[in-house]
């Protein structure tokens, strides 16, 4: 009761000042600015219902010419697909091999700042450009063909896998690390026994995802001459062979679906 006096007097003003959910004016201003910009940008780009309706007509014609798909040139199709698959698998494997040590170096909970920053910079650099842009660079540097595609997708894989893996490592429980460290284990053993088991399941998921992405991207890099089915697809587009385009696209979809099934199998094998 000693504090009764001072407490009772300003109660009403205090209640008025104490809102349960004070308005965040900065957030409101940001939302408003975003809405204004959205309308402005859409108007600038003629993103209008009328333009969309006109586009749909073209679309209908195009779709009708896609069917039925034409599998006559299956040998060409198969050759391109096999090359794309090889590019994807080799690039993914190289990407994983490079991003494993890199992500460990970039993990802030295990490594000092002088090591995490350079590692992070490498990843940011690898992630800065779309694989197709990187592929153009490599085509210029090492010439047409699968090598340029492999290098481009490896760079892309390091960028993304590195970031995902780093974040996974930074979320591990340090209790388990502490226990292994307390046994006098050398650093690499701490990594293998306390870090890797905690992140392995997620890594398998990331690698499967990246292989999947590389499969899709390997069909893209061919457009700029870096090997794979992309070149064939682009040529078919240029010649208005839409039924062959359809055959290629269906094959790509089938391959991606097959990859999905394989991923589930692999995860089951590793019990993750």
């Amino acid at each position: 009761m000693t504090r009764g006096g001072p407490l009772s007097l300003p109660r009403e003003t205090a209640a008025a000042a104490r809102l349960a959910f004070p308005p965040n004016w900065w957030a409101r201003a940001a939302w408003l600015a975003f809405a204004v910009y959205f309308v402005y940008a859409a108007a600038q780009l003629e993103f209008t219902p009328a333009r969309f309706a006109a586009g749909l007509e073209h679309g209908a014609k195009f779709v009708s010419r896609l069917f039925p798909p034409d599998f006559h040139r299956w040998a060409l199709l198969l050759k391109g697909m096999v090359e794309s698959l090889q590019i994807a698998v080799v690039a993914s494997a190289l990407g994983v091999a490079l991003s494993l040590p890199l992500s460990l170096m970039a993990a802030r909970n295990l490594m000092p700042a002088w090591l995490t920053w350079p590692a992070r910079l490498v990843m940011i650099f690898c992630r800065s450009f779309h694989p197709v842009i990187v592929a153009i660079l490599f085509v210029k540097a090492v010439g047409f063909g699968a090598l340029a595609g492999i290098l481009a997708l490896t760079v892309a894989s390091v960028g993304f896998l590195g970031k995902l893996m780093t974040e996974a490592i930074e979320e591990i429980s340090l209790k388990q690390v502490e226990a292994v460290r307390a046994s006098g284990a050398p650093f690499m053993s701490v990594v293998m026994f306390a870090v890797v088991p905690q992140v392995f399941g997620r890594f398998v998921g990331f690698v499967a995802y990246e292989t999947d992405a590389n499969l899709r991207n390997s069909t893209m890099v061919g457009i700029v001459g870096a090997g794979g089915i992309g070149g064939t697809l682009f040529a078919a587009f240029q010649r208005f062979d839409y039924d062959f385009v359809c055959a290629i696209v269906l094959t790509i979809i089938a391959l991606i679906m097959l990859g999905e099934v394989l991923t589930m199998r692999i995860k089951r094998i590793f019990r993750v």
């Binding site: 502490e178 307390a182 046994s183 306390a194 088991p197």
Partner: peptide, 18 residues
């Protein structure tokens, strides 16, 4: 030195996935 000092933890700190 740590090799000769065993430690037991409150929340066991086992590596769960091993």
């Amino acid at each position: 030195a740590r090799r000769h000092i065993g430690m037991v933890f409150q929340e066991y700190n086992l590596v769960e996935r091993l």
